[in-house]
Design a protein around this nucleic acid. Structure first.
Lengths: 357, 357
DNA sequence: ATCAACAATGAGACCGGTCTCTTTTTGTTG
DNA sequence: CAACAAAAAGAGACCGGTCTCATTGTTGAT
């Protein structure tokens, strides 16, 4: 082995400069790729750096430049295919633009989210992408703006704060499938979501702090009312946050006397759970229960029957969020904008026309 | 609004010190939570910090301490449920221990992986968790060791480098299910993986650079040979990296004259694709084809038939990797160890006893 | 009363880069 | 060949913290 292989290679510009016989400033110019240097010195310094196995300290660099080259991402649950797909979109764009992604999982907990944002801010990320758990509790997002760093909201808009946002047309999608279910003869339709407090009952959309879900519920309720559907307090099931709780919620719903004839699941994780419980209880889809799920997860096309879904452009959601952020970081200014991506209902076989009884 | 609300709040310890009427050193002691300070000054400084809305610059802190409080994670594909679940395990442990996670997706590309490791190193992460795409190409991993930072390999061991590792007992699991399939009368069994070069044919396990998959293939081949199964070059299908390519590979396999009677899918993504293609081609599972998949993804229990899987403790894999790393970061020394977690075959209904023809 | 021991604070170097400003070298031109 | 502009290199401050060491103030034991 090389005997001048120092332990823990803390080779600095100064070391390289010494070896190359130039000043620290000159070495820094070469190593940092800025300023003007003659070809001869450039090569000498480069050679010295190579010989010493020099690696720049990005931290020190960030200190003076003020840019860290990282963007922070705070999502609700990385395990949810929705987020992991969006995450890939973010990642792809970020790496293309030369940024590194710092990820924090909030577990949909507003406190953890605040903590996460604070942490990222102290770590001096250049910008943030957040899927806020609570559209009202946004003091920490204001803090981001105040600290002068860029912010993009992902999937969940907040009316309370003016900021770049990328969402799907949730409300419209919910209206569309609700109208459609009604046209097929369904009168008892339930909407299930993991948002909201477990054990709580739904009262008003304002209780739902997740932007996207609130919009959907608003759309759902709106259409129900227009079509004069009888809405009970069971029409909207909230708080299905843990698998265990989800399971219980669905079981209760499906064994109740006024069992719904159609269910809208707020994401693929909930949709899957509905599917599982139906199987256990021998509730046949779509004969006994029609099912529509948000998010076109990969498995939804392969069940028996395949599940009708609202296809959201999830990857693009991530891409857009990241590229909006990158644009801001590259100096784009102007009014914050809100981009709404279109969804599409993919009709499969989990929804039935209801026989008149 | 507060009129002394400075833009881009670059409030530093010096500012706080000034306001509190103490020296920079004293203010730093309070703000940094070290050294000895009297209660009175502590409160004065804290008050000043609050009034000024002081936020520490973690970057500057890291500069001097040498610790950044972050761990870097490089995985193959965050969209694969295997990794997103492991990622959650890592995340949970990391945040518990006060670390932030920096994530980079390699897309199973060794070059991107090297780049990622280099980037993380320059960003001075305290430690790294890597799922190496290529067990032979590990110069960049040596580099990590040389830079004096901790490293844990996730899911994929490398004999070439001595380092802490967390894996599942892949070889044994593969042996077990292969033996079991043979006992059920299967003589033509195929193994499909996304690893390896698309378009290439399999020759020897050494071609497979993904540690875990190589082990499984070794186990598979070993049992096949012991049981005198005829192995063709189609017995192992590699390079199913893109959905498109996977689809084609599977289609070819299932329409060939010597169609296998059983298929082992190397992960749930491949397993799902097999399932889809079977459906398209009207190949009935398990009547026409038996299917076993690695990774007990959530949807596998809900298909018709439900899929027999090798259940790996994926979350724990992530947890273990993170906690090993955290231990090292907290000063634990000693020989690198390799932890092997047990798997379990979950028998469902996608495997049939073969009728003698 | 004297001095040691320790608590509390201050002064300033330091981490590893960037960047401004100054000095030296080089090259062009009348 | 002097005169001057431009190019190249150097000196040193700076980013925002930490940390060592020196200084001052307080207490208790002798």
């Amino acid at each position: 082995m090389n005997q001048n292989q120092a332990r823990n290679t803390p080779v600095t510009v100064a070391d390289v400069a010494l070896k190359a016989g130039v000043s620290k400033a000159t070495a820094a110019r070469v190593l940092g790729g800025y300023g003007i240097v003659s070809d001869r010195t450039r090569e000498a310094v480069a050679a010295a750096a190579r010989a010493l196995d020099y690696h720049p300290n990005e931290l020190a660099r960030s200190m003076t430049t003020g840019r860290s080259g990282t963007i922070g991402v705070v999502v609700g649950d990385i395990e949810n295919p929705f987020f992991s797909l969006a995450m890939r979109g973010i990642n792809d764009v970020a790496r293309q633009a030369g940024f590194t992604v710092v990820l924090i999982n909030s577990g949909e907990d507003a406190e953890i989210e605040k903590d996460a944002v604070r942490t990222l801010l102290t770590k001096r990320v250049d910008g943030l992408i957040v899927s806020p758990a609570d559209v009202n509790d946004i003091e920490h997002l204001r803090q981001v703006a105040r600290s002068g760093r860029a912010l993009v909201l992902l999937d969940r808009a907040s009316e309370v704060v003016e900021v770049d946002t990328v969402v799907a047309n949730d409300r419209q999608a919910a209206e569309e499938i609700t109208r459609w279910l009604i046209r097929l003869g369904h009168r008892r339709i339930a909407y299930i979501t993991g948002c909201g407090d477990p054990g709580q009952r739904f009262h008003t959309p304002t209780d739902i702090t997740t932007g996207s879900v609130r919009r959907r519920i608003e759309g759902f309720l709106d259409v129900c009312q227009k079509e004069h559907l009888e809405l009970t307090e069971d029409s909207i099931q909230i708080g299905a946050a843990t698998p265990d709780h989800t399971r219980r919620t669905i079981t209760n719903m499906l064994t109740s006397l006024q069992r719904p004839t159609a269910v809208i699941a707020s994401d693929s994780v909930i949709g899957l759970e509905v599917f599982k419980v139906c199987r256990e209880l021998r509730v046949r889809i779509p004969k006994d229960l029609s099912l529509v799920s948000f998010h076109d997860a990969d498995w939804t096309s392969v069940t028996s029957p395949p599940v009708t879904v609202v296809r959201q452009p999830v990857y693009q959601l991530g891409e857009m969020a990241a590229s909006m952020l990158v644009k801001r970081l590259n100096g784009s200014s102007g009014q914050p904008s809100c981009i709404v991506l279109e969804t599409e209902v993919v009709e499969r076989a989990s929804v039935a026309r209801l026989e008149q009884s």
